[in-house]
């Protein structure tokens, strides 16, 4: 699946988008897997309360399933308007 990052999450991880091969079943599982990979993920995902997630471009929760998902995006709370 594609994993996308926006705003300071993108800056901490260093890429806007990457293809990730994973058996993770939920967003929480995916986060745990990414955090164990490299320090830059640990830095981005240290405080999950500061993050929001969208699965297939729909805002959702960290306990949401990602089975069959094409796209998961992580970002800080939105500041539109």
């Amino acid at each position: 699946m594609d994993v996308l990052y926006f705003a300071w999450v993108r800056e901490r991880i260093g890429v806007p988008k990457e293809a990730v091969e994973t058996d993770a079943k939920t967003v929480t599982d995916l986060v745990a897997e990414l955090r164990s990979r490299e320090e830059r993920y640990e830095a981005a995902f240290a405080d999950l309360s500061a993050l929001r997630v969208a699965v297939d471009q729909e805002l959702t929760d960290f306990d949401a399933s990602i089975e069959g998902a094409r796209e998961v995006a992580f970002f800080p709370p939105m500041t539109g308007g």
Binding site: F6, A7, L59, P77, M78, T79, G80, G81
Partner: peptide, 14 residues
């Protein structure tokens, strides 16, 4: 619309 655009539309300001 303004309240929801502020917090639920995926924009980030720097």
């Amino acid at each position: 619309l303004m309240d929801y655009l502020k917090s639920r539309a995926p924009f980030w300001k720097k």
